[in-house]
């Protein structure tokens, strides 16, 4: 059931991508430090974190609040730069890029899923899924088709013309997941994706994430709930800005659904693996 990493990583990227991921870890951080400055006081948030993430992995980063897991996620998401250390995303060091370059990286290679969904209120579900393409100047009839396909994948094709306020929490999170997928990113970063949802909706969302992972998506998820972490394949525990434990999850929770629905294509616009 697990897709081989090479199947995803060897997809042809846009010519200007400049990132190669074949066989290599998609994410590699080396001795990352992050300090915050409160006035003259230095507050270390990360104190030498190293981590490798291979394509197709599903990692749960766990830890109490203040353990540095959110800081790590922000760094992984290129929303912030480390104080020290290297970060290779798809083989390219992105630790010291400019703000514009980081935006470009986020736009093309990273998908975000947030606890509070973070949809743009004045846009419809369709437009919310499409927004990342705006900033690439990449809106086309094909991309519109892709929005519809992703909406179908997350089970929202009937809700595309609704505004976020007209959708339930679970539905909003599905829109956010579709939005995270629109650019076919290297990694999907999920920050407490079920934090605002009730148990049964949480289960639905986790089922969807597991399904995406089964289709080859690399997912890094921050959570403090062991129940939710149990859907992942690997758990990284943090405390006081350091990784204290990094282990595979042996008793993985399984979702009741069988294999991936036939015909679901995550990478319809990239279009390479359809032929393989």
């Amino acid at each position: 059931m697990t897709v081989q990493p090479s199947q995803i990583t060897e997809r042809e990227r846009q010519p200007d991508a400049g990132l190669q991921t074949s066989g290599e870890p998609v994410v590699r951080i080396v001795d990352i430090h992050k300090d915050y400055y409160l006035g003259s006081v230095v507050v270390p948030a990360l104190r030498g974190v190293s981590l490798e993430v291979y394509p197709g992995e599903f990692i749960a980063i766990m830890g109490a609040s203040g353990s540095g897991k959110s800081t790590l996620l922000n760094l992984l998401g290129c929303l912030d730069r480390p104080t020290r250390g290297q970060y290779y995303l798809g083989g390219r060091n992105v630790a010291n890029l400019s703000d514009d370059e980081l935006s470009e990286i986020r736009s093309r290679y990273i998908g975000f899923i947030f606890q509070s969904y973070n949809l743009i209120p004045q846009l419809t579900a369709f437009e919310n899924i499409e927004v990342p393409l705006y900033y690439q100047g990449n809106v086309s009839p094909e991309s519109k088709q892709r929005v519809v396909e992703l909406a179908r994948l997350v089970g929202l094709e009937r809700w595309l013309n609704h505004k976020p306020t007209q959708l339930s929490g679970g539905q909003q999170q599905r829109v956010a997941i579709a939005r995270a997928l629109i650019n076919d990113p290297y990694i999907i970063l999920a920050d407490e994706p079920t934090g605002n949802l009730d148990t049964s909706t949480s289960y639905e969302i986790m089922k969807l994430l597991v399904q995406l992972n089964d289709m080859g998506k690399t997912i890094i998820m921050v959570t403090h709930e062991p129940d939710i972490a149990a859907y992942a394949k690997r758990a990284v525990h943090m405390r006081d800005g350091k990784i204290i434990k990094d282990e595979p999850i042996t008793q993985r929770r399984v979702t009741s659904d069988g294999p991936v629905p036939a015909g679901a294509q995550l990478t319809a616009s990239a279009g390479q693996d359809a032929g393989e």
């Binding site: 998401g77 929303l79 703000d99 514009d100 935006s103 470009e104 986020r106 736009s107 093309r108 975000f112 973070n118 949809l119 743009i120 927004v131 990342p132 900033y135 690439q136 939005r179 650019n183």
Partner: peptide, 10 residues
């Protein structure tokens, strides 16, 4: 913040 996260430049 959302727009920045999903790739908008300054």
């Amino acid at each position: 913040g959302i727009r920045r996260a999903i790739g908008a430049k300054q």
